[in-house]
């Protein structure tokens, strides 16, 4: 589904952000990307739907080359759902209109069909009653669930999550993770940048560990948590699991 091969990204020759990153996500797989801050994991996931450019290497999403100038990026992105750290709901639109905008303008769905779809998804994330409110009237956890519903409204073939719970108060993390766990169990292909190791243990098939722009470890969940091969991954795990 996603093929990342030898991706390099730099701002200046001496400031390399991604170094020779190669990995893949197959259909129905849930891959968790973790690592210390500044390790390039958010940058990598943003390269997948071309929100960030990169200088060399290739990324294929469902057979389409992301870094080909001829690729119709809006069309490709409409099939790749993305959830951001800071939700990025559109504050001037009601919740239901947040879900309908791209359905209507990008997919060309008629308004009533888009609304029906939107309401179904809001019900699924438990926020049907909030449809007529504005984003700022919702809590952070609720906003992030709306953001997930908004991405799902486009019927994506894969979902990207960029630290979806890092900006949330602790008591709201689980309501968002619950939605993500359900999604994973339904067979959605997911690439998730997160520090939530509990989530990784529960639903991940593979864990990628990044440090200083490199993929240091790319292993099955059991291998990663059982016996990480690299020193850096061991140190990282011992630090975040010690509490």
């Amino acid at each position: 589904m996603i093929e990342i091969s030898h991706v390099n990204k730099w701002y200046t020759p001496s400031f390399q952000v991604l170094t020779d990153c190669t990995t893949s996500v197959t259909k129905g797989e849930v891959v968790v990307v973790c690592g210390p801050s500044g390790s390039g994991k958010s940058t990598l996931i943003k390269c997948v739907n071309a929100l960030e450019p990169f200088q060399s290497g290739d990324i294929l999403v469902d057979g389409t080359k992301v870094n080909d100038p001829k690729t119709n990026l809006p069309k490709l992105r409409s099939r790749v759902g993305m959830v951001f750290q800071h939700f990025e709901l559109f504050p001037h639109l009601k919740i239901i209109d947040n879900l309908c905008l791209a359905q209507e303008k990008v997919l060309g769905r008629p308004r009533d069909k888009a609304q029906t779809k939107g309401m179904q998804l809001l019900e699924r994330v438990g926020l049907k009653e909030q449809a007529q409110k504005f984003p700022a009237q919702l809590s952070g956890g609720q906003q992030q669930r709306v953001a997930i519903a908004r991405a799902l409204a486009m019927d994506p073939i894969v979902m990207l999550f960029d630290e979806p719970t890092s900006a949330l108060d602790p008591e709201m993390v689980s309501e968002v993770l619950d939605v993500m766990v359900d999604l994973a169990r339904e067979g959605m292909t997911m690439m998730v940048v997160t520090h939530e190791m509990g989530f990784a243990r529960k639903v991940a098939n593979r864990v990628i560990f990044m440090d200083r722009g490199e993929i240091v470890e790319d292993a099955s969940k059991d291998d990663f948590f059982g016996k990480p091969r690299s020193d850096r991954a061991q140190k990282f795990l011992s630090k975040i699991l010690s509490h």
Binding site: N49, L51, L73, P74, K75, L76, R77, S78, R79, V80, G81, M82, F84, H86, E88, L89, F90, L101, A102, K105, V106, L107, R150, A151, M154
Partner: peptide, 21 residues
């Protein structure tokens, strides 16, 4: 900058993202 990024991620073109978001 997150707003146009979110609009792009949903598949809106630059012009649509400007106009609607």
């Amino acid at each position: 900058r997150g707003q146009p990024a979110a609009a792009s991620a949903l598949g809106l073109t630059y012009a649509q993202s400007m106009r609607y978001v």
